[in-house]
């Protein structure tokens, strides 16, 4: 039963683009003047409709299945949850279907079912209580290849963050399927900054960081990224990013780590909650 619910969450994530993303894409379509930018955005909006109506993956890169789990330690469903996630990945691969995307790094052999060493990727967090909350984020390879880490000096600070992000987005051009969503993690260490950056993508497009100072930086950076003119699919235009999300952690006095996760326009996600009585809610 739990496996069924996880399969449904995966199906929802890959076949239905969240409403906040679709409305940002529609807004971009209205805002673009170039015929080529509109050609690409029109295709995107058509693909979104076809995916939703036919319950088929909008993008053929159904990604690396990445889960963020916040598990209440008193939940009776915690035992066996990891096995259920792996089983759901296998079943979703057959049933949705998904593209098998897990490849052995030495032999190059595809496992065929989206499972393998550390795959699906599961980020665990333990919490008080008896509920389990889970987010599924199918992460595409083309955009992930544009992700990067900068170990800045404290002297470079936030101005360095700005320069690093703009330079990286410019360098990647059309490769990550713009208009992109940028997840940025600042502080922590090298590893934490990148995982915060990925987690930032779980926020809705248009939803700012609750800290007003960070929210302001997000809005400024979004405007600057869009002034680069890369545009939909890198063929020029006003919309290079749909949103910028920043999460922070305290840093070491000597370090200023910045993790950047680039997400394609198909900013896919779905959520699931397991109540202590076994009821499950799946939403987006």
């Amino acid at each position: 039963m739990l496996v069924d619910a996880i399969v449904e969450a995966i199906r929802l994530a890959v076949t239905r683009i969240p409403d906040d993303v679709v409305s940002a894409l529609r807004k971009a379509y209205g805002f673009e003047e170039s015929e080529i930018a509109r050609f690409n955005l029109e295709n995107i909006l058509k693909a979104v409709e076809i995916g939703k109506d036919g319950s088929i993956p909008v993008c053929q890169d159904t990604g690396t299945l990445t889960f963020f789990v916040r598990a209440g330690v008193e939940s009776p469903y915690l035992r066996g949850l990891e096995g259920a996630i792996v089983e759901a990945a296998r079943r979703a691969t057959r049933e949705v279907p998904l593209r098998p995307n897990a490849v052995d790094v030495l032999t190059g052999k595809n496992s065929g079912d989206n499972t393998g060493r550390f795959v699906p990727v599961v980020h665990w967090e333990l919490a008080e209580g008896s509920e389990i909350e889970m987010a599924v984020l199918p992460k595409g390879g083309g955009s992930e290849n544009c992700s990067a880490l900068a170990m800045l000096t404290p002297g470079e600070g936030w101005e360095g963050v700005r320069r690093f992000v703009l330079e990286r987005v410019r360098e990647c051009g059309g490769k990550p399927c713009p208009p992109v969503v940028l997840g940025i993690g600042v502080g922590g260490g090298a590893d934490l900054s990148l995982s915060l950056a990925k987690r930032a993508l779980l926020r809705r497009v248009g939803e700012r960081n609750p800290d007003g100072r960070i929210a302001e930086i997000e809005a400024e950076l979004l405007e600057e990224v869009n002034s680069l003119g890369i545009g939909p699919m890198g063929m020029g235009g006003r919309t290079t990013a749909l949103d910028v999300k920043i999460e922070v952690a305290h840093r070491h006095p000597a370090s200023f780590p910045v993790g950047l996760i680039v997400q394609c326009w198909a900013d896919r996600r779905a959520f699931l909650r397991i109540k202590p009585d076994g009821r499950v809610e799946v939403w987006q």
Partner: peptide
């Protein structure tokens, strides 16, 4: 030739 990235469901048509 470019086709729109991510629009896999449309390309399949």
């Amino acid at each position: 030739f470019a086709f729109t990235g991510g629009a896999g469901s449309l390309a399949a048509k």
